[in-house]
């Protein structure tokens, strides 16, 4: 008994000592690693700022430098606009980063794939949109969300149907798609047509919300079509959008749909909308 006790106690003491040493080693190693990383980041940040200023510097030779540059570029691009952003994007394209981004997007680790998505978004090259649309089918939710956000930033109206389809397929949340489509900034109701005619009510709802928020006057007929929608949230979104668009032309459709409704909250919502628009209607 005593021998076993002694053995167990000695073993436990050894484990404790090892854990303390492990803690100390962790602190030392992370401190050294942080210092090295910080130095590399400072050196490469200076390089990136020169690139944004229009200097044409050679591409980094080491993989580690390239990865750090890619991460820094993604971060920097979130606060860059205009010529600085274009200079950075052009340099990344010239320096072989599109290939690097594609390789990352094929990795098994989802965080690496998202890193690839972020880099493609930052590069914003001619084939970025297509690559991001493909990533909307990624198995990982967070990568798909990153691709949706990337499509919002790269901003092509032709990508809007892909975002709506991803919502309908349950691959991204409707709220996230709405944010991305709004970021794309469609300039006509026609660009939202795939949303208005979607079978998924959440897609029809966000199409209506975006049309209203962007005050797309030419979306009025499509919104009027949604007034008779079977989903109450779609009808509410269409009513709110019509109020935002502020076009008294919608009154005819509103009155027609209201008259079909019983005295319920939806009918009262119609009446409020009609009152708002009647205030705008020219008298006589």
């Amino acid at each position: 008994m005593t021998d076993i006790s002694s053995l167990i106690l000695q073993g436990l003491a050894a484990v404790l000592v090892l854990s303390v040493l492990g803690l100390i080693a962790t602190v030392v190693v992370t401190a050294v690693r942080d210092r090295i990383r910080t130095a590399r980041r400072e050196r490469l940040s200076a390089v990136l700022l020169d690139i944004c200023d229009g200097e044409d510097l050679p591409a980094p030779r080491s993989t580690r430098d390239a990865e750090t540059i890619a991460d820094l570029a993604v971060r920097l691009a979130t606060s860059l606009k205009g010529s600085d952003r274009e200079a950075l994007s052009a340099w990344l394209q010239r320096s072989g980063f599109p290939g690097r981004a594609r390789a990352w997007m094929r990795r098994r680790n989802p965080a690496s794939r998202l890193r690839g998505v972020a880099l493609v978004t930052t590069i914003n090259g001619p084939r970025s949109g297509r690559a991001l649309v493909e990533m909307l089918a990624d198995p990982h939710r967070r990568v798909r969300a990153g691709a949706a956000r990337g499509l919002g930033i790269t901003g092509a109206g032709s990508d809007i149907p892909a975002l709506f389809s991803a919502v309908a397929a349950g691959r991204i949340p409707a709220g996230l798609a709405a944010m991305s489509v709004l970021r794309i900034f469609p300039t006509s109701g026609g660009q939202l047509e795939s949303g208005f005619s979607s079978r998924d009510p959440s897609v029809r709802r966000i199409a209506a919300e975006i049309a209203g928020r962007l005050e797309l006057a030419d979306a009025r007929p499509r919104l009027e079509r949604l007034l008779g929608d079977s989903d109450a949230t779609v009808v509410s979104a269409a009513l709110a959008a019509l109020v935002r668009i502020d076009d008294p032309e919608a009154l005819t459709a509103l009155r027609r749909e209201r008259d079909r409704l019983a005295d319920d909250p939806t009918r009262r919502e119609f009446e409020r909308t009609i009152s708002r628009l009647e205030a705008l209607e020219p008298v006589g």
Binding site: A111, L114, R115, T121, G146, R149, G152, M179
Partner: peptide
């Protein structure tokens, strides 16, 4: 996870 774009976009939208 790289989160810079996510956070910047959520902040700005």
């Amino acid at each position: 996870w790289p989160a810079e774009i996510d956070h910047a976009e959520i902040f700005a939208n």
